[in-house]
């Protein structure tokens, strides 16, 4: 059976998207809907803004992000997520590993084409 594009994306997202969430917090704390809108804008990284919340729960459980409440001008108080020290280090490790991984995939796909 040929896997569907959506099936392949599901596999690729696993293990990568949570670091994109961490990366989106590098500029400072943010709240769920803001992160979700950033990451799901093109539909590649996430298939639905709601899929962010399981990721955030998992990241908080592993101590990579922490939460605090902040008032909002447009509605109820918001739960803000911020990187912990450990989260920052985890992100650095991922960035180091990702670059060679991406090049290796790119080059092997490129070779296959010729």
């Amino acid at each position: 059976m040929v896997p569907s594009e959506e099936g392949i994306l599901t596999n690729l997202r696993r293990g990568a998207v949570e670091y994109c969430v961490l990366a989106s917090l590098r500029g400072g704390a943010s709240y769920g809907r803001d992160i979700a809108q950033q990451l799901s804008a093109d539909g590649v990284l996430m298939n639905g803004e709601g899929t962010l919340y399981p990721l955030l729960a998992r990241l908080r459980k592993s101590g990579l992000v922490e939460t605090h409440w902040q008032e909002s001008t447009s509605g109820p108080p918001r739960r803000y997520y911020a990187l912990t020290g450990e989260g920052e280090r985890a992100l650095e490790v991922f960035i180091r590993a990702w670059s060679p991984f991406r090049s290796a995939v790119d080059s092997s796909l490129g070779e296959g084409e010729q």
Partner: peptide
């Protein structure tokens, strides 16, 4: 936690 996140998302969007 997941359900709270989704509920807050909806409440924020409605607001």
């Amino acid at each position: 936690e997941v359900l709270d996140g989704v509920r807050e998302h909806i409440e924020g969007a409605l607001a």
